Simulated assay, not measured.
Amino acid sequence: MKKNLVFAALVSALVLGGSIGSATVNAAVDGVPSTAKTQGIINFSLPTDAVDPLDPTTPLNPDGTQNKNPNDDMNKPTGNTGALTLDTAPYLSFGQHVIGEQAGSTYTLDSTANPHPYLQVSDRRGVNADNKAQGWTVTVAVTDFSNGSQSLAGTKLSFATGTVKAGSESASTQSAPTSLAVNGLSSASSATAIFGASVG
């Protein structure tokens, strides 16, 4: 008596809800076919947890993951939860200066206070029905520098384009986000895009 067993399964994954795939099992006993059809169901839900900040100064591990960045007081976790999150935003220090310095002075970030300021975004929403990423944008806005009783009038903030790094090997194969330069941002400016990923 000869037995042949062939199993084939097809499962289509959706971002949300359930998906049903079919599996056909064929068995032949003494040349007489016997067939049965069954179903497999898989469900997906959006994540609700926070994402730990990763260390942008180290390369990806051999398994395609990135090391976590614990105890970084200058780039603290936001604690935001959900499927699309801003996970960390940097502390920006412009150093110590003497009152009465020349008007119009330009001050750069103090790299000794925060050597590696960075933003981290996690998009865990999956893709739309057209199999394209949904896109996202990070904007930046500023308030006046103030000590509580006095404000630093006329302050403007500028950011050069940053280096974009993937947090995992799978993320690096998707369309890469882009960093945007921001020039002359003041408290009178509207929120301005600084980092984002396009739809697709």
Rank of each mutant, 00 (worst) to 15 (best):
P90M: 06
A160D: 13
L152Y: 13
L60E: 08
T88S: 14
V127W: 15
G100V: 12
T108Y: 15
Q96Y: 15
P77C: 01
D63Q: 00
F159P: 01
N131L: 15
T58Y: 04
H116I: 11
T85H: 01
T161F: 03
V140C: 13
N67H: 08
D123Q: 03
G100A: 09
V127T: 15
L92H: 06
L119V: 02
D110P: 01
S93H: 08
K132T: 15
L152M: 13
N69M: 02
R124H: 10
D63T: 05
Y91H: 12
T81H: 09
G154Y: 05
T137D: 07
N71V: 06
S151R: 10
S149N: 11
D110Y: 06
N147I: 12
K132A: 14
T155N: 10
K76T: 08
Y107K: 07
N71T: 09
D52R: 11
T143N: 11
P77F: 04
R125W: 10
K156D: 12
Q102F: 10
T143D: 14
T78A: 05
A103I: 13
D123C: 03
L109S: 04
M74A: 11
D130P: 05
T78G: 02
Q66C: 05
A133I: 14
S105E: 10
Y107I: 07
A83I: 03
V138M: 09
T78S: 04
S111Y: 11
G135C: 09
N69R: 09
S149A: 14
T108S: 12
T143P: 00
Q96C: 08
P59R: 05
P70I: 00
A153K: 13
P59Y: 07
T57K: 00
E101M: 13
V140D: 07
P117C: 03
D49F: 13
G82T: 02
V138I: 08
A153P: 12
P53D: 06
N61D: 04
T161L: 01
D73E: 07
T143E: 12
P70F: 00
L152F: 13
K76R: 11
L119D: 05
A160N: 11
D49Y: 13
A50D: 07
I99S: 09
A50G: 06
G135V: 10
Q66D: 04
N131M: 15
N67P: 09
G104F: 14
Q102E: 15
Q150G: 04
G126A: 09
D49T: 14
F159I: 06
N147C: 09
V121S: 02
G154H: 05
V51Y: 08
P90W: 10
D144A: 14
D144C: 04
P77W: 01
L60V: 12
N128I: 04
N131Q: 15
N69K: 09
N71H: 06
D72M: 01
A129Y: 15
D72H: 02
T155E: 14
N71K: 05
D123G: 02
T155F: 14
V98E: 11
A160E: 10
T112K: 08
Q134L: 14
H97E: 08
T108V: 08
V127E: 15
D52A: 12
T155K: 00
V142Y: 01
L157H: 01
